[in-house]
Write a protein that binds this DNA or RNA. Structure first.
Lengths: 101, 101
DNA sequence: TTCACATATCTAGAATTATAGATATATTTG
DNA sequence: CAAATATATCTATAATTCTAGATATGTGAA
C-alpha cells in the first residue's frame, strides 16, 4: 500500500454516499432485493439497485462505482447486461493495516 | 463509529500531505529532529516541524491539523507556546474496524 | 507590559470534486 | 438486425476543498 493509492482510497471514502455503499455491500441480502437471474450475492449487487437505493442519478453512481473499482475498493463482475459490485476485502484489510501503526 | 464521523475521517485521509503526516507521526524520531524543551515524542511533534517538513504554509498546515484533531485522528497537547500532535491510535483502530467486514 | 515567537482564524481566489443530462456503448431478446 | 434495457462516458455547472496572505490570539521571556 503506497501513499498515492491510499490517497485515492481516501477520496472514495470521503463521501457519505460512497461510504454507505461500502456499508450496504457488507451485507447485500439485508439491503437489496434478490436479483432476477443470479440467485445469490456472491458477486455483489448490480449497479441499478445501488443507484436506486442511493437516490442519486445513474451517471453519478456509475462514476462513483467506477472510481471505487479503480482504486481497488470494489470488484466488478459482468453477468450479461448487469455489472455486479462487491467489496474487495483483502484491499480493505491492507488499507486498514496501512493506516494503523 | 458512525457514517458522519467516518466521512470526516475519510476527508482528512483524502489528501497526500495529510496522509504523510499520519505516516510521519507513526515514527516521529525517524522523521523529525528532537525538540528543544520536551526531550521525547510522547506527545508527538510540534506544528512548526510538521509545517516545515510538509513545505506548505503555516496557515494551511494549521488548518489541516485542526481538522485532523476535530475528527479525532490526532490528539493535541500544549507545552508552553507549542502545540504537539500525536496519532490517536484507538480512533484509527476503530475506523479500521468500521471499514472492515 | 512589551516583545518575540508559535499557532489559530479570516478572507479570497484557484483547483478539484459533485452531480446530472445527454449521448454512447454493450448485451439480450424478438 | 431492431428494440429494449443496463451501464459507461462526455460535458457543463454547482459546490466544496485547497491554499496562502493577512491578521488575531496565546504564551514565555526580557
Amino acid at each position: 500500500m503506497n501513499l498515492k493509492i491510499a490517497t485515492e482510497i481516501g477520496k472514495c471514502l470521503s463521501n457519505q454516499t460512497r461510504l454507505q455503499i461500502m456499508e450496504w455491500l457488507k451485507e447485500p441480502e439485508k439491503h437489496f432485493p434478490p436479483h432476477e437471474t443470479v440467485k445469490h450475492f456472491n458477486d455483489g449487487v448490480c449497479v441499478t439497485y445501488i443507484q436506486e437505493k442511493s437516490g442519486l442519478s445513474q451517471s453519478t453512481i456509475s462514476t462513483y462505482l467506477s472510481n471505487m473499482e479503480k482504486c481497488g475498493l470494489l470488484i466488478s463482475t459482468r453477468h450479461g447486461k448487469w455489472s455486479y459490485l462487491k467489496r474487495n476485502e483483502p484491499l480493505i484489510e491492507a488499507y486498514s493495516q496501512y493506516l494503523q501503526n
